[in-house]
Simulated assay, not measured.
Amino acid sequence: MSQSVVAKRYAVALFEIGKGKSNLDQLEEELLVISDVFKNDETLNQFLDNPRVSREKKKEFVRNVFKDVSQDTLNTLLLLIDKRRVDIIEDLVSEFIKMKNEARGIAEADVYSVRELTEEETKQIQETFAKKMMINNLRINNIVDPSILGGVRIRIGNEIYDGTVKTQLKRLEQKLVTANK
C-alpha cells in the first residue's frame, strides 16, 4: 500500500476526531508545527528510525518534545510510532489540511508572477478564481519567477491557468511554425 494512501487514512481519522470536537484549526496548527520539526530536524528522524531504540523510548521522547499539543495529535504521533509509520507525517499533514480546506470551501493556489503581487492584485485573483472554482475562499501563495517575463500562472490543485507572456510567445511561435508548413 502506498504511503499517500496510508497517510490519508490517518488524516481522515484525525479529521473526523477534530470535526467531532470542533478543533480542526487547533489540530492544523499543531500538525504544521510537527511537520516543520520533522522536516528540519534530521537527528529526530534518525532517532525515530533507529531500530536499536525501543518504541517506548521513542514514545517517551515524543511525549516530552510535543508535550504542548492536544491529546488527539499526540495519540496520532504515538500510533505512528507503534505502527512504524513516522515517515508519513508530512503526507498526513498535507492530506489533513486538504480535507479541512475542502470542508470549509477553501482552496490553495500557487500564483507565479514576475514580481510580488500587490494586495489589490491578490484580492482580484482571489475573487475571480473563487467564483470560477465555486469555493468560498482562495488562499494565495505568491511565488516570484522572473523567467515568466510577465502575466501570471495559477495552480489550484491539479489545474493550471497560464496567462504568462512566456507561454503566449510559445503559442505564437507554434502557430507561425505550423502556418509556414
Score class of each variant (00 low, 15 high):
D91T: 02
K83I: 02
N50K: 04
A11V: 01
L149V: 12
A7T: 06
A130H: 04
V111I: 02
L14M: 10
F96K: 03
N180L: 13
L24H: 00
L44R: 08
L80G: 06
K21C: 00
E16A: 07
S22R: 12
V53L: 12
V6F: 08
A11N: 02
P146V: 07
S54M: 02
N158W: 04
M134A: 15
R55V: 09
S4N: 12
R171S: 06
D41E: 14
V114L: 14
S94T: 07
V69Y: 09
R9F: 02
R52A: 08
N141D: 04
K58T: 05
I154D: 01
G20N: 13
V177P: 03
I88C: 04
N136H: 07
G151V: 03
V33H: 06
P146T: 10
K19D: 03
I17V: 15
L24T: 01
V165A: 07
F61P: 02
G151Y: 05
V93E: 09
E60F: 06
M99T: 03
Q46K: 14
L48Q: 00
R139K: 10
L79N: 03
D49Y: 10
Q168T: 06
Q168Y: 13
T178W: 11
K166Q: 15
A103I: 00
Y161D: 05
S2A: 03
V165C: 14
K83C: 01
M133E: 14
K8R: 15
M1Q: 07
V165S: 07
S147F: 12
Y112C: 08
E42A: 11
Q71F: 12
R115V: 13
R104E: 15
Q46E: 14
V111S: 00
R171V: 06
N180H: 10
K8T: 15
I88A: 11
R115K: 15
V33A: 09
D41H: 15
V37M: 14
G105R: 10
K131Q: 11
N137R: 08
E56Y: 14
L78K: 04
E121K: 11
E127H: 04
Q3K: 14
N23G: 00
R84M: 06
V86Q: 15
T122R: 03
Q124E: 13
L24N: 01
Y112R: 12
Q46W: 03
N23W: 01
R63G: 05
L149Q: 09
G150F: 06
I81V: 15
I125N: 00
A179G: 05
I148D: 00
V62E: 09
